[in-house]
Every structure is written in structure tokens, then in C-alpha cells.
Design a protein around this nucleic acid. Structure first.
Length: 389
DNA sequence: CGCTTATTTCCTGATT
DNA sequence: CAATCAGGAAATAAGC
């Protein structure tokens, strides 16, 4: 459907626009690494670029020579931002190189590619090369957040209702280099998701909640997994690190990432399988809690007030205790889900990473997760999709 | 405190 | 005709 494509476009544009000022504009081709480095995609950054200071980018502890293309791009992006350099003058078509190639660049070549920033990059590169593992970041390895998501250049969504209905949300976001979420804020989403997933995982093992809802067997999920895992050397650690290092509270990612089912209707189907899932994913805490109005009395819930219904009334009672911290944006939520398919377990998957097309395998579940995250029990895919658009 | 941003919600119209 | 889908517009919390 043409319309659905719009969603993606809007979504992508929105994202790119958001980071336009400081982000580097990369051609899709550069960003979307063909097959191999699935990690290629740059993740959408959250609020702050690289936190200047404490948080070190993931490439930090790695020898430049071994950087992947993604890491190279991140590194470039990092310096672009750090130097407030106008990335528009960089010839990114020449940046599609891995660390090895980068290390072979001469100062002149760097200048050619990066302009005035070339010298800086050249110097930094060689500094790092000489002192591979930064002394200041002993724990870096553990910290690397390795989301090399695909989503960086375009985000698209393809939804397929359980009903078999399918539409594609295609995002034609102009490629824009988006800093990787190595900062705490971004990580929040992940940690949140990870937490939920872990919970779910644990539960499912106990309850033997048939992983059906997780759809691990789902080819799609598999795809994503294979897509990222293998190529991403950090993944294993990353997750651990993420869940450990990231601010826990900030993001509670619930398990299944997104599934796409447009409306609640479509959710009808998902709901069914969702409930149990949710229950597992968001056991006692969030889900249940959010269900009946979380926190925040006094303050109104975000958005246009809903027509009151018995349910809503109940729900509204104790809703929303805290406002969602900055960084918990919808696009980040989606990004994180896509970035870590192995965690979303069948909620969403990339259809065509390069094109920025992704599919909601279980839209309603995703919406529920989003709602949980935002402490809005009434979230539906319909609303989620609207927000995306 | 006003403005902006990012949703959230409702509603309508088009398409399937 | 019903279901699905997309977009407009209003409303609001949160951030600046």
C-alpha cells in the first residue's frame, strides 16, 4: 500500500531531520551494509551524541585495524560530532571501509575524504592505534554497546496482520548517520527491553510458555538473528553489558518487540497471544500495573483525553508516576527492537534492511510494549502506527 | 511561564 | 458493507 509507505517515509524523515544538524549524512549504500556486516546500520542515536566524557563509544576499546565498517562510521560520526564538523562536506561514499582500510589511509587521503577533519581523524586514528585499549576504559569492552542496527539509514515498517493482511511501511528516510546509542539514554530502551525479555525468558522456561509467541522458530526472527549475531562480534557481550550497564529503570523493554498489526482489531488476534505473553513479559510490575493506571494522579495522561469508559476510569486512577525520561522516543523504541532481533523474539523483523523496510510480526504486542513503556495501558497498534506516521 | 516537541486520542475518508 | 488503513486535528505532558 502506498499509504503505508508514507509512514515509513515520515518516520525516517523525522528521524533524520531530528539529527540533521549534527549528524552526518550518509548515503544509504554506505550505511546499509550489504549482507555481511549486518551490524552496519547505524543506530539512531538518542538524545545526546556521544556523551563527551564518560561514555566511550564501542569502537573505543578496539584496535582500529579490526573495526568493522560500522565501527568506522561510528568513529567518524563521533569525531564529526565532537568537532561540530559540518558533515555535509564529507564524502561518505568513500567511508565504506573497515578499520583495516581506514588504517591504510594516508593523511592526504583522509583530508581528501574528510576535508579539514581529515587531519584530526588521522591523528586520532593513529593515537588509538598506538594505544589500543584505552587506559581510561578498562571496562570498555564490557561496555560496548553493539547495536549495529540496520536501521540507521532507513526505517521502514512492514506489517503483516496475523490475519494475513499485510502492508508495508517503507521508510525512505534519507540516509543519515545516526550516532550509535552508546549513551545511557539510548541504552535505556534496550535495557528495558532486555529486562523484560529476560524476565520473559525466565518465565517461559518455567512455565514453558510455548515460545510460540516468541516465535523463535519464526524464520523471520531467525533471519534477524542470523543477521545480527554472527556479524556482530559484540553482541554477546553487548547485551550483557547493556543490561547490566544501562540504566535499568529507564527502559523496560518488554519482550517482544513489535509486531505489526495495524489496529487493535488486528490485535484481536494478537491480543490473544499477547496477553499471555505480556503477562510473562511484564509480570507483576509494569504491565499489570500499567494496566490499571499507573501512578500519577493529578496529572493528566499525555495526549487527548480519552472518552471515559468504565475501564479507562479505573485505569486512570493511579497512572503515570513519572514522566518518561527523554530518550524514550518511539523511534528509539522501534530502533532498539530492530537492532536486537534476538531479543525481540518475533515481534518485528527486518524485511529489507537496506531499504529500511521492517515488518511487524506482532503489532499488537509491540504496541503493548510501547504502551507499557509509556505507562499507557490503552496503547494500541493503531495509535502506535499513528505516532509513527 | 510561554513555546516547542512528541506523542496520544478521536475522527473521517479512502481503500480493500 | 465491514474491516483496514492513513492522515488531520486537538489535546497534553515534558523539556527547554
Amino acid at each position: 500500500m502506498a499509504a503505508s509507505c508514507e509512514i515509513s517515509n515520515i518516520f525516517s524523515n523525522y528521524i533524520s531531520a531530528m539529527y540533521q544538524p549534527e549528524e552526518v549524512q550518509l548515503p544509504l549504500d554506505v550505511l546499509g551494509c550489504p549482507g555481511e556486516d549486518s551490524s552496519m546500520g547505524l543506530s539512531l542515536s538518542t538524545s545526546q551524541p556521544l556523551a563527551e566524557g564518560t561514555d566511550k563509544p564501542e569502537w573505543f576499546g578496539e584496535l582500529p585495524y579490526f573495526w568493522t565498517k560500522v565501527q568506522v562510521l561510528e568513529w567518524i560520526s563521533y569525531h564529526v560530532e565532537k568537532n561540530k564538523y559540518d558533515a555535509s562536506s564529507i564524502d561518505f561514499s568513500c567511508c565504506n571501509m573497515d578499520g583495516r582500510a581506514l588504517c591504510h589511509c594516508t593523511r592526504d587521503q583522509m583530508r581528501l575524504i574528510f576535508g579539514p577533519l581529515g587531519d584530526e581523524l588521522y591523528d586520532r586514528l593513529h593515537e588509538i592505534s598506538e594505544c589500543p585499549v584505552s587506559p581510561q576504559s578498562p571496562g570498555l569492552a564490557a561496555h560496548r554497546v553493539r547495536p549495529r542496527p540496520p536501521c540507521q539509514s532507513r526505517v521502514g515498517a512492514q506489517r503483516k496482520a496475523h490475519t494475513g493482511l499485510g502492508s508495508v511501511l517503507h521508510c525512505a528516510e534519507q540516509a543519515s548517520l545516526i550516532p550509535v546509542p552508546r549513551n545511557p539514554v539510548a541504552s535505556d530502551e534496550l535495557s528495558w527491553i532486555i529486562e523484560l525479555l529476560e524476565k520473559e525468558d525466565a518465565d517461559s522456561q518455567e512455565t514453558s510458555l510455548d515460545s510460540s509467541h516468541l516465535e523463535l522458530g519464526n524464520p523471520c526472527a531467525k533471519d534477524s538473528l542470523e543477521d545480527l549475531k554472527p556479524t556482530n562480534p559484540f553482541l554477546a557481550t553487548d547485551f550483557t553489558c547493556l543490561s547490566g550497564a544501562m540504566s535499568p529503570g529507564s527502559s523496560d523493554l518488554s519482550g517482544p518487540v513489535m509486531s505489526h498489526s495495524p489496529n487493535s482489531q488486528d490485535s484481536g488476534g494478537s491480543d490473544l497471544d499477547l496477553d499471555p505473553l505480556e503477562a510473562k513479559l511484564f509480570p507483576e510490575d509494569d504491565f499489570a500495573g500499567s494496566k490499571k493506571g499507573d501512578g500519577k494522579h493529578g496529572k493528566r495522561k499525555r495526549g487527548r483525553p480519552r472518552k471515559l469508559s468504565k475501564d479507562s476510569r479505573e485505569c486512570l486512577e493511579g497512572r503515570k508516576s513519572k514522566h518518561s525520561p527523554r530518550g524514550t522516543h518511539l523511534w528509539e523504541f522501534i530502533r532498539d527492537i530492530l537492532i536486537h532481533p534476538e531479543l525481540n523474539e518475533g515481534l518485528m523483523k527486518w524485511e529489507d534492511r537496506r531499504e529500511g523496510v521492517f515488518k511487524f510480526l506482532r503489532s499488537e504486542a509491540v504496541a503493548q510494549l510501547w504502551g507499557q513503556k509509556k505507562k499507557n495501558s490503552s496503547m494500541t497498534y493503531e495509535k502506535l502506527s499513528r505516532a509513527m506516521r
